[in-house]
């Protein structure tokens, strides 16, 4: 059992609060993604779990044990760093074995775990090399192998893919997903990349300015953002936001107290002729993206982005009628 509980974590740097009274429970074997823009406190939170950051107040428990004042080495965790933090003076083999030897595991056990973990990450051929002789992607694999070799129930990952180039990142993302599911550890994964978050997480905690705004499953976060920030941060293009009042004309009446409507680009049906229940929009830009077209248009004085079928290729300056799918309309405050 390696459930992680964060209770009222507060950490300040000078006057700025990196995390402002954050509480979060990460279930055993759950894959939790901490997502947010830089400076939102996600990395501070991860480091607090690792014990690398002294928190001002609050408690951290791992597997029911209060580890708030326990140094990292006694927390039973493994961590992958953004910079990989592969030791340059040790071979790949010694890097992976480092933690196992510190734990004083018997040599046979060390060997077994190193080899198993190297095999999983497909780096068996490089075991005798030094990190300087490896590419960035290979170093990253070493870092993951080193963490997975540890017999620990908690795996912490701090933006592990952000230093890889785009193509490699895509490959590694899929591979990580499989590896981590097989490993079955409680995983906390920090990223600022919403696609990564959506693709990997069992749940995503979206953070901004030191607080968690929403913690839900990927689909839920994507589909039912709690506010404008979450909707705008997740999804590409970001969710459209329109004044609720403007939709009364097409029969969409906001519940009392809500003055904003959020609707995603793929949730608008587009027509080239007037249509009841559709908003009139004038097209500004048409971007053909192969599978579909992304159209930027103006509804009244508000901008809106719409996905259309690839075949629909209107001229900029022409009109388009957009009909929101009623069950996809999200009312926000």
């Amino acid at each position: 059992m390696a459930e992680i509980q964060l209770n009222h974590i507060i950490k300040s740097y000078g006057k700025a609060r990196a995390t402002n009274d954050v509480s979060l429970t990460i279930k055993d074997k759950e894959f939790m993604v901490l997502l947010g823009p830089s400076g939102c406190g996600k990395t501070t939170l991860l480091r607090a779990i690792a014990g690398l950051e002294a928190i001002d107040s609050g408690t951290v428990t791992i597997g029911g044990r209060d580890v708030t004042n326990v140094p990292p080495r006694f927390r039973d965790i493994a961590m992958v760093f953004q910079s990989y933090a592969v030791f340059p003076h040790l071979t790949v083999w010694d890097n992976i074995a480092f933690g196992l030897r510190m734990k004083k595991l018997p040599d046979t056990e060390v060997k077994k775990r190193v080899e198993m973990s190297a095999e999983m990450l497909r780096i068996t051929d490089y075991l005798q090399r030094f990190p300087a002789q490896l590419s960035g992607g290979q170093r990253q694999r070493v870092a993951v192998a080193r963490a997975l070799a540890m017999p620990s129930g908690v795996l912490l990952m701090g933006e592990p893919l952000s230093n890889l180039d785009a193509l490699l990142r895509l490959d590694m993302r899929a591979e990580l997903k499989k590896l981590l599911r097989d490993a079955g550890a409680t995983t906390v994964y920090v990223t600022h990349d919403q696609v990564e978050a959506l693709s990997l997480g069992d749940r995503i905690a979206v953070m901004k300015q030191g607080v968690i705004l929403q913690c839900d499953s990927p689909l839920r976060v994507y589909d039912h953002p709690v506010d404008k920030f979450v909707g705008g941060f997740i999804g590409n293009p970001p969710m459209n936001f329109l004044r609720a009042a403007g939709l009364a004309a097409i029969g969409l009446i906001a519940p009392p107290g809500y003055d904003l409507v959020g609707i995603r680009a793929e949730n608008l049906d587009s027509f080239t002729s007037p249509m009841s229940g559709a908003l009139e929009a004038s097209i500004l830009v048409v971007e053909p993206l192969g599978s579909h077209n992304l159209i930027t248009a103006k509804v009244g004085d508000e901008f809106i982005k719409v996905n259309t079928r690839a075949e629909l290729m209107p001229e900029p300056g022409s009109k388009l009628w957009l009909k929101p799918m009623p069950d996809k309309v999200r009312w926000l405050k």
Binding site: L52, S83, F87
Partner: peptide, 15 residues
């Protein structure tokens, strides 16, 4: 890099 030291600490080293 500071990371290397922290990595060592997460892998079971005292400071």
């Amino acid at each position: 890099p500071r990371d290397l030291e922290e990595a060592a600490e997460t892998l079971g080293c005292s400071p």
